[in-house]
Simulated assay, not measured.
Amino acid sequence: MLNDLRLAVEKSNKGGSINEFRKDFAAAVQKSGWTSWTGQGSAAGEAWRTRVIYQTNMATSYAAGRWKQLNDPELLMVRPFWRYIHSDSVLSPRPQHKAWGDSGLTLPADHPFWATHFPPNGWGCHCSVQAVRAPKTGDATAPPEGWDTVLDKTDAPPGIDKGWAYAPGPCRYATAPDGAGQVDYLS
């Protein structure tokens, strides 16, 4: 079933709609015999479940591609800093994400903060990162105190949902074991 869902996500990444994903999801669930999942049995519940899966996979796929773009050596030569951008379109903004965006948090691209805080940082997070030449006057140029403390409740730093303390890009694109350059491990 997971392979069928992965194929449905890949199809969506190539331009498929959420409605196509929902059909592929229904086929995968039926084929695997998965039952008793949250949302099963009601149109609203199934729409919610498929929307969460679809949006989460699209956001992390986008983030992996964005990570690769932002790490282009030519771009890094002219824009070596990254700024955290909070999305104001979120109905219930996370206080930390909003604070990072409102403060203009701008750090070098190679700062360890980005390894755990490169968005999305949780379910429904629509934050992003922008490459910039340098911090603007008034921008925060250091992460907030305690940013790297791992909370027992979430096993993640403050402001990061459980299971989200990673940057999707380096998890998808990594250096080949023989040092021959970048490899896309998911293709």
Rank of each mutant, 00 (worst) to 15 (best):
N71P: 01
I85N: 07
R83A: 01
P80G: 08
M77D: 13
S103F: 00
R83Y: 00
P95S: 15
E74T: 15
L105D: 01
Q96R: 13
P80H: 10
L75V: 12
L70N: 04
L75Q: 09
R83N: 03
W82C: 01
K98S: 10
P93R: 07
M77E: 15
S87I: 03
L91N: 13
E74Y: 07
N71W: 03
I85V: 15
H97W: 02
D102C: 10
V78C: 04
R79H: 14
Y84T: 05
H97M: 11
A99H: 04
N71L: 07
V78Y: 06
S87D: 06
F81K: 07
P93Q: 09
P80T: 10
P73Y: 09
S87V: 05
R94E: 07
L76Q: 11
K98M: 12
L70M: 12
A99C: 05
L70E: 03
P80E: 08
Y84A: 05
L91M: 12
D102T: 12
F81T: 04
R79G: 02
R94T: 06
E74G: 13
R79T: 12
S92A: 14
K68G: 03
L91K: 15
A99P: 00
H97L: 05
N71Q: 10
R94S: 09
M77N: 15
T106I: 09
V78R: 15
I85F: 03
P73M: 09
S103K: 04
P93I: 05
G101S: 07
T106W: 01
L76H: 01
K68T: 03
T106S: 10
L70Q: 11
A99G: 03
P73D: 06
D102G: 08
P95A: 15
R94D: 01
V90E: 06
L75W: 09
D88G: 14
P80A: 10
P95F: 11
Y84N: 05
V78F: 08
D88S: 15
N71G: 05
S89W: 04
S92I: 13
L105S: 02
R94W: 00
H97V: 10
M77I: 14
G101V: 03
S87N: 09
L91Y: 08
